[in-house]
């Protein structure tokens, strides 16, 4: 069974990659399995300078999901290039760097700094983090700003750009169209949905940040719907994500129109989830009548 997929800047041996923020910089999970098995790795968001992130608690479990408000904690793009990326060079697995910022200038600076390394195959432009006071999701909810930041980061970058979309919008196609026209090479969708959980005993939100991003199986139908809608109108590749826990979920994302997928929250439930999905994917594809991953992409669309 051919699991390989080809995307701008990315030749993937299979379509499975851990999602940004759920896998750190890979080191921890390399203790569990050989990262060579992965299609790619999307590393934790990079900002211009080191960020500490939000106060704790930063996570709360919800039914079939979780809320997080980490707040883009990271050592800064220069430290990531110097300390984290070299460790990942031991693996024959493309690295996708997630780029975040508070201002367009910060996004530009991070993308520009990433030109100093050969170890990044693509950028995932994070215009959808719901957990920071400035920037983040505001760029992902306003089509003009989304277009502007895409255009300017694209100009600073020498690798393909995948724009990570926020689901916290009324019209996902409008935003996807704006970033596609601004030069995005692909889309990454969806980021978390904003949510809250209140503790009955304390009568206060559990997260110190009060509001967090909802991920996990609870959001999968939203992701499928949005990918499907975008695929109907926009012709750039999609890395799909949102609640994937098994190979059947992967097939559903492929049918909706994703070209590859990222697995996020499920890594916390089962650290071996990515290699387990990769090993069961051929059987699931075969069971549903597909001869390759490419064969299944977009096959959920009925064109009347």
């Amino acid at each position: 069974m051919n699991l390989a997929v080809s995307l701008p800047g990315l030749s993937l041996k299979n379509p499975i990659m851990p999602a940004s923020g759920c896998f750190g910089f890979g080191t921890e999970y390399s203790n569990f399995y050989d990262l060579n098995q992965l299609g790619a790795i999307i590393i934790k968001a990079a900002t211009a300078e080191a960020r500490y992130g939000n106060a704790t608690p930063r996570v709360a479990e919800t039914t079939s999901g979780m809320l997080n408000a980490i707040g883009l904690q990271n050592p800064g793009v220069a430290n990531i290039i110097d300390s984290e990326l070299p460790r990942l060079q031991a693996y024959d697995t493309p690295i996708i760097a997630n780029v975040a910022g508070s201002t367009i200038e910060e996004y530009e600076m991070v993308a520009k700094t990433l030109k100093n390394t050969k170890h990044v195959a693509a950028i995932e432009l994070n215009i959808s983090c719901p957990n920071v006071k400035e920037g983040g999701v505001q760029f992902g909810t306003d089509p003009y700003l989304a277009s502007e930041v895409t255009k300017r980061v694209k100009a600073q970058s020498n690798v393909p750009l995948y724009v990570k979309l926020s689901p916290n919008v009324t019209n996902i196609v409008e935003i996807a169209d704006a970033v596609a026209k601004a030069g995005a090479d692909g889309l990454s969708m969806i980021n978390t949905l904003t949510g809250m959980k209140i503790d009955l005993q304390t009568r206060k939100p559990i997260l110190a940040n009060k509001i967090g991003g909802l991920s996990g199986p609870a959001i999968k139908p939203v992701a499928i719907r949005m990918i499907y809608q975008v695929k109907q109108h926009i012709d750039i590749p999609i890395i799909g994500m949102g609640g994937i826990t098994c190979a059947e979920d992967v097939l559903e994302f492929l049918l909706a129109g994703a070209n590859a997928v990222a697995v996020g929250t499920a890594n916390f439930e089962n650290p071996f989830i990515c290699p387990e999905i990769i090993s069961s994917l051929p059987k699931v594809l075969e069971e549903y009548g597909f001869s390759s991953v490419e064969d299944a992409i977009g096959k959920g669309h009925i064109y009347e």
């Binding site: 759920c22 080191t27 999970y29 704790t56 996570v59 997080n68 980490i70 904690q73 916390f268 650290p271």
Partner: peptide, 10 residues
Amino acid sequence: GCGVGACFAC
């Protein structure tokens, strides 16, 4: 979150 150092929750 993860319990292994990857997610920066704690």
